[in-house]
Structures are given as C-alpha cells and as structure tokens.
Write a protein that binds this DNA or RNA. Structure first.
Ligand SMILES: [Mn+2]
Ligand SMILES: [Mn+2]
Ligand SMILES: [Mn+2]
Ligand SMILES: [Mn+2]
Lengths: 219, 219
DNA sequence: CCAAAGTGCCCAGTCACACCGAGGAAAATT
DNA sequence: AATTTTCCTCGGTGTGACTGGGCACTTTGG
C-alpha cells in the first residue's frame, strides 16, 4: 500500500504530466508544487521508481508507469468523491473542502469508495467541475475553454475552475460566477487583457486576466 | 497533533481504565490489547508522559491526564460517528465497519466531525450500542446488564455488544439477536452456564456463556 | 561547437517514529 | 525471605522523509 506521501507525489506528477502531455516531468517542478527540496524529490523518485510506479532514469525527467498512473487516478478519485460528499451531503462550501479532502483521499478501503460513490449517485464531476475518475482509472477529459480565450461576442456557461484557492472561490461566489453561471463577453481591454462580461443576462462586470484564465466555460 | 499510533494507545488505555475504574493500567495489558511488546509500550508511555497526556511513574502503572482523556474520548467519538455513518448512510452491516472506522477515526478536522454529527442527526449510540462522546468529551455511562447475569424468569432488550468481532456479530444476526431484540431467560444450565432463552416472544434457543457474557440488555 | 547557465543527482547526514530482545531492577506473591 | 511476576532500561534496528553542498550532466545561445 502506498503511503500518504507517495500518493501525494504520484498525484502531483500526474497533474504535472497532464499540463504538458508527452513532456517528462522535471524534478524542480515537483519540488515546487510539493513545497519541498529537489534533493527530497530525487530521493522519492528513486523509491517510486524501484516500486515500479514511475519510469525514472537519471537526468531524464520522469513519467508514470501504468501502475503509478492508476494509483494517482485512484487518489484523485477518492479526493473528488469526498469533496462531493462534503459539499452535497455535509453542507460545506466549495472553498472549504480542499484541505479536508487532502487528508481523506488517503483512506484505504475500496469498498468504502464504492459505497460512497453509490450513496452520492455516481457523480461525474466534483464541486469544482473536475471529472471523477472511474474505479478502473478511466477519466473523461472535459471539453472546456478558458474564459480568457473567448472573444467579444462569444458566450458560455461556467463549467469548472482551474484554481481552488479560498480567495479565488470566495471571489467567484461574491461575483455570482459559480458553476452554471452564463457568461457573455462584451469587450476585451487590450492593455491588461481584462474582460467586460455580462453574468446571467444581468449584471455587467470587469474581470481581470488573472481571473479569466482560471475559469473554464463550455457552450 | 497526535499521531495515529498515539491515538490508538490513548484509546486503548482509556478503555482499559474503564474496565476497572480507579485501578492503574498495566504495561503488559496494553501490550496485549495492542498486539505489541512491553518494551514498545514503555517507550510510548514515556513519550506520552512527556507530552502530558498521561501520568507515568515507573513501575506504577499509568492513568490518563485530563488532556489524554480528552484525546482518547475524541478519538472514540470519531470512531463511533463514522461507524454510524457507514451503517446508516452507506449501508454497511455492523460487522463490516470496525476496520474502516479504525482508519477514519484518525482524520483531524473538528469541523468535519461537527458537520457529520449534524448530518447523522446527533446520534447517541453507535451501531454496536456504545455511547458517542460529545465534542467536549462528555460521555454517558449506559445502564445495562450482561445477559449472563440474568436469572431465569428475567427479561430484557438487547442494547449493546461487548465484542465487535465479525464472527460474533454474524452469529447474532443469524440468531435474531440484533439490537432491540427481546430476550427472556427460561433456564440456566448450571454445568456450563449456558442459557435457554426466548427471542422476541418467539423462538427458543440455547446460548453459550461465551455469548451471554458479551451481550448487554436493559429493561 | 563551446562555455556558461541551469538542472538534477549523489552523498552523507539528520530527525522522528515505532519497534524489539535481553538483562536486571522493582514489586507482588507466597 | 525466596520466588515469581512485572516492567524498566539499554542498546539497537528499520523505515520514511527530508536536507545542504558539491559535482555531474544537459541545455542554450552565442
Ligand atoms: Mn493528500
Ligand atoms: Mn476539487
Ligand atoms: Mn485506529
Ligand atoms: Mn462500535
């Protein structure tokens, strides 16, 4: 059974490898996202390599093996299912769940996850709009675009957030930009790439580029 | 924050100290219930003593401090609330929950437990009839008697089990002796202390002393 | 193609945690 | 008082995770 730390590493490596498919993940990047030192990462990579969870060749970056990918996806599955539970059943707000789920994702009971999945009626998305991998690791790549890629005149429905930090989610709540909100781009300010948008056929607001490149929409 | 192992030790010490209130808990007993060696126990006792979680004086046995008792009771609270969740919400049988709860009891989020408690409608008893400590550590000592202490002619309702092993609970299910069942003692066989009982004003069965001294009833 | 810059490995070590066997000290029992 | 039981202490193991510093390797851009 993988330790908590191993699961966290594999999850981080999986996410980094999704950012740039095909490209190997670098030691420094991993150290950065996990808030640790490169030397620690090298150490862990060697161990995970020995366990057959990733392809590790010195100086060559790293990529997950089939097994490693599976562990990563199962961890993500657990994380997201617990987030759904916390929000839909326990009444947590979507900005309160991340840390708790970070701990719950390490529970090791396949039966528990199967029953939880059923209890939640087999959700496909977590509270942040991210897809929930199936028990066998299958995951659907969602079809979204970043709001920052929309041109004036285009519109869409908010489907997911890229960032799950508390301040960002709080801001979205306040601005009325929760999942499901309709966005219509009215204008794009060339100077700082901020956007003038209409929300739910109603209020008109200005959102910064920092916001728009962390929000996904679909038609 | 206490580690998993520390919480397990404190829980075990609390339970042992309840068995014989007033009497200090012995190193060997702890080693026995935790399936480890006395040397390891001494080691842990020293550390827990230094952390102020128990009174440790060499050769004198051990008793929990206020803080240690609090940690033990909160761990038991978490364990039992999760058991209720597993049975009432996820459809686990009462013989399937112990191991899973043994892991879940180590989650560290007071907010989570408060919301779970509410979600479960503030249950007072776990699926095995054991009382759930309050957030402040308050616990009600249940008023039961062991079935083995009943005399022929006496009756009662099954309120709790002392043992939560899978075979024992399975046997109770099969015999119709779940919580809430009515028991009437018809006869006591002096030779082996087995009891002839009537269950729910219906079937008459013989139960061994091993069974009857692990079953609690109240009027 | 080379040199500087950047990246990542390796070493040697730390620290925390949990465990254990052996031997003898202390306490309990008789 | 002698024996038995308990359990502490000591010295040690193993694992997991982390780290600074030095150097090896790779990349880049001139
Ligand atoms: Mn985590
Ligand atoms: Mn999420
Ligand atoms: Mn436990
Ligand atoms: Mn229980």
């Amino acid at each position: 059974m993988p330790s908590h730390t191993e699961e966290n590493y594999l999850k981080a490596i999986y996410k980094l490898s999704e950012e740039q498919p095909g490209v190997e993940v670098s030691t420094n990047r991993i150290a950065e996202v996990l808030q640790t030192r490169p030397a620690s990462v090298t150490d862990m990579l060697r161990r995970l390599g020995e366990k057959g969870l990733l392809h590790y060749e010195r100086y060559r970056g790293v990529s997950l093996t089939h097994d490693g990918r599976r562990v990563a996806l199962l961890t993500i599955r657990k994380h997201r299912l617990w987030e759904v539970f916390l929000v839909n059943k326990l009444g947590f707000n979507w900005d309160e769940v991340h840390e708790v789920a970070e701990e719950m994702e390490h529970l090791q009971s396949p039966l528990l996850m199967r029953r939880l999945d059923e209890f939640l009626s087999f959700p496909q998305l977590d509270p942040h709009g991210d897809p929930i991998p199936a028990e066998d690791g299958a995951i659907v790549r969602p079809q979204h675009r970043l709001v920052s890629d929309l041109q004036p005149g285009e519109e869409g429905t908010v489907m997911a957030v890229k960032n799950t930090s508390v301040p960002f989610l709080r801001y979205l709540d306040k601005a009325g930009l929760s999942l499901g909100a309709k966005i219509e781009v009215l204008d794009k300010i060339a100077f700082d790439n901020s956007l003038e948008i209409r929300i739910n056929d109603n209020k008109v607001t200005l959102i910064s580029h920092e916001i728009s490149c962390n929000l996904f929409v679909a038609d």
